[in-house]
Write a protein that binds this DNA or RNA. Structure first.
Lengths: 118, 118
DNA sequence: TAATATGGTTTCATTTTGATACTTAGGAGA
DNA sequence: TCTCCTAAGTATCAAAATGAAACCATATTA
């Protein structure tokens, strides 16, 4: 069986859709360090809404990249952790955020040049 | 100056938004091989619409990742190519699509397991 | 009794997306 | 001359995704 992301019907497109999501990248980056609880993720990922965080985690869990553990404390505690499959992905995902942090100045300069000439 | 993608106002978020886009990933992957014309990209990236391809290319050009060359043929020819800055990114982006192609079966299995238990 | 914390879901207005049609310009064929 | 063709887009509009804010259950603390 041959997979090719350039073919619309290829299931790899689903994966690419998931990975190519800003929030998923940020969530995976945080969970790569250690298991984190819902509200702590919400606090650490500045700007994410509860709804989107909830949806993002649910999708990542469904894809087998993240696991969800509930503890019967009061109030209930829910902890999210990265799975072994997710672990195989984090170095790539981290490279993306690192590239963003390292090359942002070149990108901003390119944008200014582009906007001036337009 | 410190950049941190986990801060909402950080400009790196703009970059992450751009990279964390399925279509941008696919476009950069194609251009990494060789310069390609608009309609050929459209043909090779199965499922992309003209509008979205046009928008994606414009954003990538503005960010300095892709260059656009117009040739005065009839009809006009427009060729898109990757820039040196864009070149620094393609290995990372290629790793994403490779991960998708290599791990799709594990992801599909995880999804089925998740859906059965729900 | 009221406020606080956790981990969500619901609602609704705003954005974004995608499909489709239209445009511009020159050349080829009838 | 009239019509069609290609390349590379733009315009339009309906459908889907997103984000902000409110709501919910439960139990503890002030």
């Amino acid at each position: 069986m041959e997979y090719d992301v350039y073919v619309q019907a290829c299931p790899t497109r689903l994966v690419l859709d998931r990975l190519a999501d800003k929030w998923a990248v940020l969530v995976l980056g945080k969970l790569d360090e250690q298991p984190v609880r819902f509200n702590q993720l919400k606090r650490e990922i500045d700007g994410i809404s509860q709804k989107v965080l909830s949806q993002t985690l649910k999708k990542l869990e469904r894809d087998g990249l993240v696991s969800r553990s509930v503890f019967a404390t009061v109030p209930v505690t829910v902890e999210y952790a990265i799975t072994p499959l997710g672990r195989t992905l984090t170095s790539t995902v981290a490279a993306l955020t690192r590239w963003a942090e390292n090359n942002i100045e070149a990108v901003l300069a390119a944008q200014q040049k582009y906007d001036r000439s337009a």
